[in-house]
Design a protein around this nucleic acid. Structure first.
Lengths: 227, 227
DNA sequence: TAGATTGTTAATCGATTAACAATC
DNA sequence: TAGATTGTTAATCGATTAACAATC
């Protein structure tokens, strides 16, 4: 019945905030660890200590999906893990193509951790004739001219965009035009896409700048302490 | 005088929220574009339309650093760009080493966009004897055994961690022990570090899972609309 | 001067934390 | 049954938005 309650809420489209969504993979990782270590039960309090999140937030987060626990007993690790799997679609078997077989694109094609998440890389595309035809992780790099044909003949859920900055917009338009619903964008450029498309950005240069900023702040903080 | 006001606040350690900090590189990119396009002045209203942020938030964010504008006239692009440069430490000349010369480490070593941010990659390290001695982006891969020696002889601000999951904790401990103050962590594992060290995580597998989740949600949403 | 737009204060909104009744 | 811990409601905290006096 816990399950039905959860489904009911999900169908009600109760909007789950981005903050909660972004914590889900983290829960998934920690619960996966517990499972691997043969821990069968955990309370929100214990988990909160491991994860440095308040127990209240954990319960609040899980209750967005109907709640997975048992009063007095906490959460069953197996069940929680399965539910998180369902929520995150690890069982959906997402297929992904990579646009741009440069260093980053090739690194992602070989990234084992992604493959462990029910995600399959089924195609790699590039513009450069010198790169087309080479092999990346068991796949032959195809010309971007063949993308639409490929998408029509295969279930493709996500396109990873690892192309130079000036090509990201045309490439995004192209794959969205072919019917792809999810973009994993590695270029430092915001994309404008139709309402039915989801974009997830990984802005590496933004990330390193934030780190730089924080290092400076910490150094200045230490400096001020001395005074 | 605007400048002094800004400095005063920064020294007061007025805590700037993470939300604001993470918007800074984005401002920097947009203002950089304007500069490139020879636009000399911009109001918060105009910028808000370009960036899909409220004008109020833009003014609020900039005022954390003392405010960079002129009433009635808006912001001078050149000046704003320079100030963002200072805030983000682009002029600091950060040096970075890469621990783990696998696919991802090598891709980052070759990532041009990072180098345009005043960041210099000065060393690449690996454990694997087959990899040590090979060349990455003009640098010879060194053994991780030499890290501390290297850090003692060079100014190293940041260590990028692109090592297998089970090695990230020992590697982090090692470089922190050598005196490095910033970690750019690409492993899907949270790091516990001393108070004076800053960690910036790039959890690629978390990111793709969030994307997967959102694709499912959108599909279900569309489904429900039909009913 | 009149119009525009800032920096900042106040109001609102949303997310996190605390408290507790329900219940295993 | 008594103790533990959930799911949820209420309180707090922080971030975003609105409003406006200051001023270019």
């Amino acid at each position: 019945m816990i399950n039905d309650k959860g489904k009911e809420k999900m169908n009600n489209k109760k909007n789950i905030s981005d903050a909660v969504i972004r914590r889900l993979p983290r829960y998934y990782r920690y619960i996966g660890e517990l499972k691997k270590n043969n821990i069968h039960r955990i309370s929100s309090k214990e988990l909160s200590e491991k994860m440095s999140i308040t127990a209240s937030q954990i319960r609040q987060d899980f209750s967005c999906f109907g709640g997975f626990g048992q009063q007095g007993l906490g959460y069953r690790v197996d069940y929680l893990y399965d539910e998180l799997n369902k929520i995150l679609g690890t069982d959906k078997g997402f297929n992904i193509i990579i646009i741009g077989a440069g260093n980053l694109g090739r690194a992602l094609a070989n990234y084992e951790r992604i493959k462990n998440r029910g995600i399959k890389i089924i195609g790699v595309f590039d513009k450069n004739p010198n790169v087309i035809g080479t092999e990346v992780c068991g796949l032959t790099v195809l010309s971007i001219e063949n993308i639409c044909e490929f998408v029509n003949n295969n279930k493709v859920d996500i396109a990873t965009l690892t192309v130079p900055r000036d090509q990201v917009k045309p490439m995004a338009d192209l794959v969205v035009g072919c019917g792809i619903k999810g973009l994993w964008n590695f270029s430092a450029k915001e994309l404008v896409v139709p309402e039915h498309v989801v974009v997830e950005n990984v802005h590496l240069s933004d990330s390193i700048m934030v780190l730089g900023y924080k290092i400076i702040q910490k150094a200045e903080g230490a400096q001020n302490e001395k005074l």
